[in-house]
């Protein structure tokens, strides 16, 4: 099965920032969450995949096709909701969708209409009069109506109220059901992808720090508190360690290993607490390279 996208040593240089070399592959049937601080290169990655900017080095393929601007059929396989939504501003949402429909062989008008209804988008109003939330919704419809093989979503739920956000996530779950589609979803709002994402990729300062199955992270990371007398206690598999007297609190990225070690050391009152994916992401991004190994 060809990958939904595959980036090989992709590089984009700016005067004060460099993205890459980036190596990332997304298989169909997978939702990949893309997490990182502001300015880490998430949007640049999206722009590169969509062909909005050209890379300085390396290659990328979409559904097995090279990003050749002169053979642009690969763009029909992509649904894109970017950091900005562009439309014919003086036209209505309806006219804009009508315009888009001419370019995608797999476009379905009933599907577009159903999505508009579900998201409650006013289609007759000129786009320039729509709120940011409605603009994003319109962009979502434009991206989903042709059921593309790859969805590129760059912080798509910003500006959406909780009800619409929930509808939107529902739509994404249904979109994934066939197993042949893939989503690349960059976000700050980790609760969005906490259930949807199959895998997570963390990027910081233009470099990929980690690529793992989300469940791997939530299974292996945990906070452990315990009591143990003595100083200079070295534990394997921990990211942070705080203690006051006999009371210790650690954040472990290898639950089993740390617990085993605690058992050997004879620690008492061992209590473990699960960590949410946002806490884990923060730890990884703060922790530097010793915390987790990237698997590309």
């Amino acid at each position: 099965m060809t990958a939904a996208f595959s980036m090989r040593d992709l590089v984009k240089k700016y005067p004060d920032f460099q993205l890459g070399p980036l190596n990332l592959v997304l298989e169909p049937g997978t939702v990949l969450g893309y997490i990182g601080p502001n300015g880490s290169g998430k949007t640049t990655t999206m722009h590169l995949l969509m062909g909005l900017i050209k890379a300085d080095d390396g290659t990328a393929e979409i559904c097995g096709y090279a990003q050749d601007p002169d053979e642009p059929a690969w763009k029909a396989d992509i649904g894109y909701v970017g950091d900005e939504q562009v439309f014919y501003e003086y036209w209505s949402g309806e006219k804009n969708l009508e315009f888009l429909s001419q370019f995608y062989p797999t476009w379905s008008n009933p599907r577009a209409a159903a999505l508009a209804k579900r998201f409650d988008v006013p289609l007759k109003k000129p786009v320039r009069e729509l709120s940011k939330g409605n603009r994003v919704k319109l962009a979502l419809i434009g991206a989903l109506a042709h059921t593309p093989r790859l969805l590129l979503l760059d912080e798509p739920t910003s500006g959406l109220d909780p009800v619409v956000r929930s509808e939107f996530l529902d739509v994404l779950f249904e979109y994934m059901e066939s197993g042949e589609t893939a989503i690349f979803y960059s976000t700050h709002i980790l609760s969005d992808i906490s259930r949807l994402a199959d895998e997570l990729a963390l990027i910081d300062n233009g470099r990929l720090k980690l690529r793992r199955a989300k469940d791997d992270l939530t299974d292996r990371w945990c906070k452990i508190s315990f009591q143990l007398p003595g100083n200079n206690i070295r534990l394997p598999g921990i990211a942070t360690h705080r203690h006051e007297g006999r009371d210790h609190q650690v954040v472990s990225f290898d639950r089993e290993m740390t617990l085993r070690h605690l058992g050997v050391l004879g620690a008492e009152n061992v209590e473990e607490h699960r960590m949410g994916i946002d806490e884990i992401a923060v730890q990884i991004l703060k922790g530097g390279d010793n915390v987790a190994d990237p698997q590309s």
């Binding site: 062909g51 642009p72 690969w74 763009k75 970017g82 900005e84 562009v86 501003e89």
Partner: peptide, 16 residues
């Protein structure tokens, strides 16, 4: 102002 070229570039159409 409306970033028309950005709208176009996302479409499966040749820049030519």
């Amino acid at each position: 102002n409306e970033k028309r070229y950005r709208l176009y570039t996302v479409l499966p159409v040749r820049p030519k």
